[in-house]
């Protein structure tokens, strides 16, 4: 019997401090047993349990894309016991990764469709995975227009700034980067909250256009009415939930929303699905 609680041993290969407040770091891991990389085959939108031996596990969205080989990447916010300890670990340290876990964004549904990605703050990790995946030369023809609305409090709080700049220069993805406010005279992108920019920049709804929203509750709360106004159907709005987790495989009982476990049946749900579930997240 395969033990679903046993993490694959990994080594920290690189650590990048992403944001000016230094609270977000991206960890690049390589598998100690190369065969484990195949077993960890994942889809954009899934997550994994990062296992810091002696401290515990944390569920984190996979920030790398399935099209990137040889490593996996996670961007971790410094919050509690495990993430704080992880922030102090160094390149070469050994830990574990358990997964991939959860469903993913519905790539079979999204194929041949326009995709609007709406992200805020540090919830951009699985959205990065999705963008890299869709922009892969093999995959790009499978999708129509791709729009990305991504906001943070300040320019220095945006994740993956070099990649954002590179995507800005491409003509096969429409980037709408925004910050809540800035005093930076060189800032050449949008200023304004994500819902406002969504209203201005997002394409009008049609049956072939899907929105993926991932961000803090306050952003979701004010973006959803905007999408409603623009005519997005609730089965065309895709969201990724978070809840406290331990097992990641639908067994330990804490992350349920109604009868669904966020870890196993989610974390991705359409708004139409969420409308039938208690608001317990």
């Amino acid at each position: 019997m395969q033990n679903p609680y046993l993490p694959y041993p990994v080594k920290i290969d690189e650590i990048i401090t992403e944001t000016e407040d230094k609270n977000l770091k991206t960890f690049k891991f390589v598998f100690i047993n190369p065969a484990d990389e195949q077993k960890f085959a994942y889809r954009a939108g899934q997550f994994a349990e990062l296992s810091v031996t002696g401290k515990g596990e944390i569920p984190i969205g996979i920030a790398s894309s399935p099209t990137e080989k040889g490593f996996v990447k996670f961007t971790v916010n410094k919050v509690g016991l495990v993430s704080s300890f992880l922030h102090n670990m160094k390149v070469g340290d050994v830990m574990g990764i358990r997964g991939p876990l959860g469903n993913s964004y519905p790539w079979d549904v999204l194929e041949g469709k326009n995709v609007v990605i709406i992200g805020g703050g540090f919830a951009f990790t699985t959205l990065r995975s999705s963008i890299i995946y869709m922009l892969d030369p093999v995959n790009r023809p499978k999708f129509r227009d791709i729009n990305v609305i991504y906001g943070a409090r300040t320019p220095g709080m945006l994740l993956y700034r070099d990649e954002l700049a590179a995507w800005e220069r491409r003509d096969d993805i429409h980037m709408h980067i925004t910050v809540d406010a800035t005093t930076d005279p060189d800032w050449k992108y949008n200023v304004g909250f994500v819902p406002t920019i969504t209203e201005k920049k997002a394409p009008q709804a049609d049956s072939d256009t899907y929105a993926i929203i991932c961000g803090p509750p306050i952003m979701i709360k004010f973006t959803q009415p905007v999408l409603d106004k623009m005519g997005y159907g609730h089965d065309h709005i895709i969201m990724s939930l978070e809840n406290r987790m331990k097992c990641g495989i639908g067994m330990c009982g804490r992350c349920n929303v109604g009868k669904e476990f966020v870890c196993k049946d989610g974390p991705v749900f359409t708004l139409a699905q969420l409308n039938t579930m208690p608001k317990e997240y």
Partner: peptide, 30 residues
């Protein structure tokens, strides 16, 4: 149930312990 790492010096075990939905920590976010 809950999962916890319990260290004894340089050694340790990952344990699982009964947990309960009656406790606020059971579902508290970071």
């Amino acid at each position: 149930f809950d999962i916890q790492d319990e260290n004894h010096g340089k050694c340790g075990v990952r344990m699982r312990n009964w947990d309960s939905c009656m406790y606020p920590l059971f579902s508290l976010h970071g």
